[in-house]
């Protein structure tokens, strides 16, 4: 049973906003019990309104499609793509021709005079290989002295001529650009001078 003094105290706390949810539920239960003391009856309609409000329900049932939303799970695909990329890169690295030993096939065997006695000539491949030792460590093969500059290719006459023409053309372009830049600097200086003149004139008028 509800004790009037307790309810009155709770009610005071309620109006001050100091009650807990549990105390508020107790008050609601008291005013819903139908045994409200006459001294508190003026508050009964307020709690009745709260009860009515709590009973309001949605009449139109919401419609939500049961089809699962389309979600793109891209993580497995990303992992698979990464693995494939890694394997491709490894295969390419492993199977690529060793670009650091390109001259083995170009060594002109024909330059060797046929008339010379057949001395035990070492195969050029072996010779070059000894100059540029290759470290073979299973999957990876790296040339040890990879930092060595590659031999400068010899140019024939036509190539030399073409190179000279290209150089001349580039020199011409460079000189034009230089001249243009100088002109631009001159123009800027000219504009600045004019600006100063106008400013002085304006100040003088002011």
């Amino acid at each position: 049973m509800f004790q009037l003094q307790h309810i009155e105290a709770l009610l005071e706390k309620f109006w001050e906003g100091d009650t807990t949810l549990e105390e508020e539920r107790m008050l609601k239960a008291y005013f819903a019990s139908g045994q409200v003391d006459d001294s508190l009856k003026q508050y009964a309609p307020f709690f009745q309104v709260l009860r009515q409000e709590q009973a309001v329900e949605l009449q139109r049932p919401p419609v939500v499609t049961e089809i699962r939303p389309v979600t793109y799970n891209w993580k497995p695909w990303l992992a698979a793509a990464s693995v494939a990329l890694l394997l491709s890169a490894g295969w390419w690295w492993h199977s690529r021709p060793n670009v650091d030993v390109p001259y083995t096939a170009e060594v002109p065997r024909s330059t060797t005079p046929v008339t010379q006695p057949e001395a035990p000539v070492q195969p050029p491949t072996a010779q070059l290989a000894s100059e540029t030792p290759v470290q073979s460590t299973g999957f990876f093969r790296r040339k040890i002295n990879a930092h060595k500059p590659s031999p400068t290719p010899q140019l024939n006459e036509e190539e030399e001529k073409a190179m000279q023409e290209i150089k001349a053309a580039l020199a011409l372009v460079s000189s034009k650009l230089k001249k243009g830049r100088q002109e631009a600097v001159k123009g800027t200086e000219h504009l600045e001078t004019m600006d100063k003149v106008f400013k002085k004139k304006r100040d003088g008028e002011g």
């Binding site: 309609p45 009745q48 309104v49 009860r51 009515q52 009973a55 309001v56």
Partner: peptide
Amino acid sequence: RTDTLNPAEAAESNDLTENI
């Protein structure tokens, strides 16, 4: 709200509840 009122509550409903 009138849909959710039981007869007793409907009877009790008065101007004060409307004002509240």
